[in-house]
Simulated scan of single mutants.
Amino acid sequence: MSATHFDPASFFEAFGMRHVDSAGFDAAVVQAPGDDLRCVFLWGQDCYNCNIFKQTALLHRDALLELDLSWFEADVYADEPLGRRFSLHGVPTFVLYRAGKRLGRITGWPGLPQFTAAIRRLREPPPENSAGTS
C-alpha cells in the first residue's frame, strides 16, 4: 500500500486552518479577541499518524466543520520551540483555547466519535456548584 500524498495548502484550506508559529502564537490564538473555540492542530511533516488524521478529516469534512471550530495549524517539526512549549511527545496533538484560556489537549487522533464528544463536552456550560447553598 502506498502512502497518500497530501497537498498541505489545499488540506489546510479545506478547513480554513490558519498557520501559526512560536513567534505569533499568543497574538493569533491566545490573545485574539472573541470567545470562539480554537483548535490548534500540531503536526509534523511526513508524520504517519498526522496523515491518518488528514485522511479521516477529509472523509468527514462536513462533520468536523459542524463542530464550528476556529482552526489553526503548526508543523512542530519545523518549529521546535512550539513543540517544546507544549511538551509534545507525539503528534498529532490538538490544543484547545477559548477566550484566552487553554481548555485542554487531545494527543493522537482518537477517532471522529471521541474527538467530537470531547469538543461537545468543552461547549457544555460548567456544572453549577450547589455546595453550601440552602
Rank of each mutant, 00 (worst) to 15 (best):
Y48M: 12
V91G: 10
W71Y: 09
A28W: 00
A28Q: 03
A74L: 05
D35F: 00
V40A: 03
E80M: 07
G34F: 14
D35Y: 02
W71R: 09
S87A: 13
A57Y: 00
S87G: 05
W43R: 09
A63G: 08
Q55P: 07
T56K: 15
A32T: 07
V40Y: 15
N51H: 15
R84G: 00
Y48C: 08
W43K: 14
N49G: 06
D68N: 03
A99H: 14
R84V: 05
L65W: 04
A63E: 15
V95C: 02
V76M: 06
R85E: 08
L82D: 02
D46T: 11
H89W: 08
C50N: 09
F41S: 14
L67W: 11
F53I: 02
N51E: 15
D62V: 09
D62F: 08
V76L: 07
S87L: 13
N49Y: 10
V40M: 11
L42Q: 12
C47Y: 07
I52H: 12
A78C: 08
A28H: 01
F53Q: 06
L64E: 02
D79H: 10
V40E: 10
E73I: 00
W71L: 08
D79K: 13
P92A: 14
Q31E: 15
K54W: 03
N51T: 15
Y77Q: 14
F53L: 07
A57G: 10
K101E: 15
Q55F: 06
L67A: 08
Y48L: 13
A28D: 04
A57H: 01
L37G: 07
C39H: 05
Q31W: 11
Q31N: 15
V76E: 02
V30K: 03
Q55H: 08
A32Y: 01
K101C: 08
V91S: 07
A57C: 06
R84D: 05
A57N: 04
V29H: 10
F86R: 06
V91I: 14
G34T: 08
L88F: 09
K101H: 11
G44W: 11
T56E: 15
L88I: 01
L67I: 04
L42K: 15
L69A: 04
G83L: 00
H60R: 15
C39W: 05
Q45M: 09
R84W: 01
A74W: 07
R61W: 13
D79F: 01
